[in-house]
Simulated assay, not measured.
Amino acid sequence: MSYNTTLLFLTAVLFTSLSISCGDRQKDKTNAATDPHAHHQQATTDSQGYIDRLNQGLIKQDTLKGSPKRVTMENVGNTHVHLTYRSPGVKDRIIWGGLVPYGQVWVTGAHTATSIMFTSDITIDGQIVPAGTYAIFTIPEREDWTFILNKNYEQHLADDYKQEEDVLRTTVRPQAHSATPRLTYQIKSVNAQSGVIRLLWEKLEITVPFTTN
């Protein structure tokens, strides 16, 4: 191969590589522009790992700002349960009877209502809850709490809460739990017919058992 032919070949390879690289960068910019949630999704993923490490005691001081969106889900038999919530931090604040007043309806998260979706009917405390999506509210007290599922799952805090839209109310008693710096929900499958909804925050835990129908 002559010197000139070799030079032309190398130039063509270099031009092709640069074109591909520029194309990839442009594709990334286009994706970011057309998907406004792309950055938020990445931020949510990052905060998930941070909060898990914080709650496990692997991070000693909570420096995360705000109340990131989190998701937890589980299959209980043939029923899929999907829960979306915001996770506030304790951050040296008095939570029960302070930030979260006793005797008032609480969004049981932060900002928007915590939502939970069941793909089929379930039963809690003998009460049938039809398949669908609901908001979780609670009324904390010094001893027993009221656990609520409400039809209006698209609302800010408890601003638009109406008791007549409740589909379920039941009483739960919080238990002592090791310190949980960031509010965390868990859905746990016990067997093919039953599971539990768990809420952990500060030094308390509430557990709501349910069965599939």
Rank of each mutant, 00 (worst) to 15 (best):
N4E: 15
F9Y: 11
V13S: 02
L14M: 14
C22S: 14
G23A: 13
Q26A: 11
D35M: 03
H37A: 15
A38F: 10
T44C: 09
D46A: 15
Q48P: 00
Q48D: 14
I51Y: 05
D52A: 12
R53F: 11
L58R: 04
K60N: 12
T63L: 15
E74D: 02
N75T: 13
V81D: 01
H82L: 13
R86G: 11
I94H: 12
I95V: 15
G97M: 11
G98I: 12
G98L: 15
V105Y: 01
W106A: 05
V107L: 09
G109F: 13
H111F: 14
T112S: 13
I116N: 03
I116Q: 03
F118K: 02
D121Y: 11
I122L: 06
I124D: 01
I124E: 06
D125H: 10
D125M: 07
G126F: 01
I128S: 08
Y134N: 01
Y134V: 01
Y134L: 05
Y134C: 07
I136R: 04
T138N: 02
T138H: 02
P140C: 04
P140Q: 03
E143L: 14
E143A: 15
D144T: 11
F147R: 04
L149G: 02
L149V: 02
N150Q: 02
N150A: 00
N152K: 04
E154A: 08
E154V: 13
D159T: 09
D160P: 00
E164R: 00
E165Y: 00
E165H: 00
D166F: 03
V167F: 01
V172A: 10
R173H: 13
A176T: 15
S178K: 12
S178R: 10
A179N: 02
A179V: 11
P181C: 06
R182W: 06
R182L: 03
L183T: 05
Y185A: 00
I187W: 11
I187D: 07
N191R: 06
S194P: 00
S194F: 02
I197A: 04
R198N: 07
W201G: 05
T207H: 07
V208C: 01
T211H: 04
T211V: 13
T212P: 02
N213C: 04
N213M: 08
